[in-house]
């Protein structure tokens, strides 16, 4: 959904060819969001059909023409409108871990608790890496781009923290249920 607007946003800064669009995207948000060329080209195709993006051909020696993409006036208008609106869709509650929890053997809560422990350790390691990146960023030159990257890293840290807190709650509730089962047997 917002691949569309991310691409429009990139093209609003500068006309680019497909490869450069991918590089720019990776540079800006690659840490959190990976896109492949297929997704980029199919989105560009759709945007062209909607007249939000257009392209020019640039001849190359011994190679097929290069397509240089640019944003149209209508594309710019839709981007501006989208930028001014708050996001109405909340984060999807669809986590791979949740599916695992759903299908693990409920007669073996110890295995579930072990998995929770491993998952928490992994999140902590990831948080440590994000923090390292943030520290490196803070030492580099300060500019708008660095600030946006830092804020994205902060978002990653807050989300991981929420995941860890949720896992801790799972742990506690599963343990409480275990004790209760023992008592009622």
């Amino acid at each position: 959904m917002s691949i569309k607007y991310a691409l429009l946003g990139i093209l609003a800064e500068k006309d680019l060819h497909g490869y450069e669009i991918k590089t720019s995207f990776d540079d800006k948000v690659g840490e959190f969001w990976s896109l492949n060329y297929g997704q980029i080209y199919s989105t560009l195709e759709r945007l062209e059909k909607e007249d939000l993006v257009t392209h020019d051909r640039q001849a190359q020696d011994k190679r097929p023409d290069k397509k240089i993409f640019s944003i149209t006036a209508e594309g710019r208008k839709q981007l501006e409108e989208w930028l001014a609106e708050p996001v109405s869709k909340l984060r999807a509650l669809r986590d791979e871990f949740f599916i695992k929890l759903m299908f693990m053997d409920s007669n073996n809560p110890t295995a579930i608790l072990e998995l929770i422990e491993k998952q928490k350790a992994l999140y902590l390691k990831q948080m440590n890496r994000l923090t390292q990146r943030k520290l490196a960023l803070k030492k580099s030159a300060y500019n708008r781009h660095a600030l946006i990257s830092e804020l994205l890293i902060d978002a990653g840290l807050f989300h991981s923290e929420a995941d860890i807190n949720w896992l801790t709650l799972c742990e506690s509730k599963i343990k409480a249920a275990m004790t209760k089962n023992k008592l009622s047997r």
């Binding site: 902590l124 948080m127 440590n128 923090t131 840290l157 991981s160």
Partner: peptide, 28 residues
């Protein structure tokens, strides 16, 4: 956990015992 992530090593205590020792660096 956001504060803990500044450490070069993170340990977790549970019910008075060491339950986790996450050395930072190395594979995820």
């Amino acid at each position: 956990s956001k504060a803990a992530a500044y450490g070069t090593r993170i340990i977790t205590l549970k019910d008075g015992a060491l339950s986790q020792d996450v050395a930072i660096g190395g594979p995820l």
